[in-house]
């Protein structure tokens, strides 16, 4: 299998887990020292002095996932249905790290209201036995800097 094929099936798997609402399994794809980042503005480099839509390490992602399964997490009750559509995948391997860029369109329908978010995604993947582990996921939304409705399902 080519690198692109390998990476593409991994990314598709990640998207499927999110769309199935299987957030626990989704989180398993992340390395212990992983970072999940949705910057608030394009080309943001500053994590500390500039707000982020999401800047979460694994303990925080665990918190988020635990909340998503709470019966009274009102923002996700009723549960949203989502499609995470991935394309335009490119990948390159340097030492033990695979750098992936892709495009994401996420459509969400909840309570008959459809919303969508789109962005450019960067994954830093570490090879492990049987596949990859995510070290970094960064989603640069084209909506960044604008007005959002609540975002409850991870991108």
């Amino acid at each position: 299998m080519s690198l692109i094929q390998e990476v593409s099936s991994f990314l598709t798997h990640e998207a499927d887990l999110l769309d199935q609402g299987n957030f626990e399994a989704w989180l398993e794809l992340y390395e212990d020292d992983a970072l999940y980042w949705v910057p608030s503005s394009p080309e943001q480099t500053d994590m500390k002095g500039q707000v982020s839509i999401m800047l979460e390490d694994v303990p925080l992602l665990k918190l988020r996932v635990r909340r998503l399964s709470h019966p009274r997490a009102y923002a996700v009750t009723p549960k949203p249905a989502t499609i995470h559509l991935i394309g335009n995948i490119n990948a390159s391997e340097e030492d033990s790290l695979v750098m992936v860029s892709s495009k994401l369109i996420m459509t969400q329908v909840r309570d008959n209201v459809a919303t969508s978010l789109s962005g450019a995604v960067t994954h830093h993947l570490k090879r492990s036995e049987g596949g990859f582990g995510i070290k970094l996921k960064r989603v640069d939304l084209i909506e960044a800097g604008g007005t959002f409705s609540a975002i409850s399902v991870p991108l």
Partner: peptide, 24 residues
């Protein structure tokens, strides 16, 4: 200042685990 930035993110980000429930 970084803590104020973080506070804002936790409370008022559209992905806030707190504010999103208020908005709902």
């Amino acid at each position: 200042f970084y803590r104020a930035v973080r506070f804002l993110g936790t409370l008022v980000s559209p992905a806030s685990m707190i504010f999103s429930d208020d908005l709902e």
